[in-house]
Design a protein around this nucleic acid. Sequence first.
DNA 1: GACTGTGAAGCCATTCACAGCT
DNA 2: AGCTGTGAATGGCTTCACAGTC
Lengths: 213, 213
Amino acid sequence: MKITKIPVATIMRMSVYSRFLTQLNHDGIEMASSSDIADGAGVTSAQVRKDLAYFGEFGIRGVGYNIKELNEHIRKILHLGDEWRLALVGIGSLGRALIMHKGFREHGFAVNCIFDNDPAKIGGFFEGVEVLPAEKIREAVSQKKADIGVICVPAAQAQNVADALVEGGIKAILNFASVNLVTPPSIHVRNVDLTVQLEVLTFQAGESIGRYG
Amino acid sequence: MKITKIPVATIMRMSVYSRFLTQLNHDGIEMASSSDIADGAGVTSAQVRKDLAYFGEFGIRGVGYNIKELNEHIRKILHLGDEWRLALVGIGSLGRALIMHKGFREHGFAVNCIFDNDPAKIGGFFEGVEVLPAEKIREAVSQKKADIGVICVPAAQAQNVADALVEGGIKAILNFASVNLVTPPSIHVRNVDLTVQLEVLTFQAGESIGRYG
DNA sequence: GACTGTGAAGCCATTCACAGCT
DNA sequence: AGCTGTGAATGGCTTCACAGTC
């Protein structure tokens, strides 16, 4: 395998391919061409082939890809063999939605520890995991070896939470708060800001229907 | 204003700038340089200036930007003057989290109609909005003039829901289901797949800690 | 004939660097 | 002196087009 830097966009698509391949496999289909996968993922066939080419040769010329085999390759590439342990901070409605989210456990993500500042919530249990106070973040994350922190607290508290998670030895952060987190370069952070997504749509929809001229 | 195609990445950053400017304004700060904004948004100052340049000249050379004024410009660019009406389909835990989400109403998004297939939920109320059966999507969306559809149903049902929303006259869709939706080109769709985001992190974290070699 | 894998070309976004203004 | 606005340069992702394989 060549040592090229792989675009994040490629990784995101790999994840989408994997989901589609799982579906096809579930439907009992064995082989698929790059065009089949492309249609399912909403991209071009050349894109599919280029993406896969970053990691190796998984297809058979003139034939296509073995779905099950390719999916296993992709899951290995994304490091989805093991279970990943999540530390969830902030068990408001969004936090609860995430912990209930079927997709998470199905894909090998297990919420390992939960934190909140609300005394009414501390000591409670969600899906069998006790809610601890925010002061315990560093200690518990370190002890329970959580891999990925999920931040679902208001923006004002997000940076403090992130700092505590990093001190606890977290490797990556999924941030739902609307702030730019400052973290050491070794920590991978992804921001999911729902308002940003909606505002992209208002911009695009506003353009096409000509709001405000 | 020149008629250039504006990158989606630029729009997403504009939304982030707006959030940061709102914060600064709230803190009583009046002026900011492109570097100040860049630091708050996690980008470079050249990027901030380039992004803004797509839409006009909003700053004063040698001085910087008036925060309140710039923010108003950005909000107009993103078409955030009016209220946008959302049609929420699927009132499971994620749907409920979204409808509770403070950021939405604060930013001018109002859930206008709610749909679900669960008889136990139909007829119930969330934040003052009645839950209607999925068969009513086309009719109600059209009647209530919802602008943006938010899909929070399982993947298997998402395409049907999208079709009904489109028939009802929706302009854009925010899709939380893990499938590629097929829609007319005039409909703007954004996919928010939480598993994709987590899998980007497992890839990156897995690389840096050398899982599986 | 069908489809993969890939160098080359094309395109788009970001960064640089500096002229222009206050 | 300080900072914006912008053409030019760079870098990176995507598309094209075709040789290679079944």
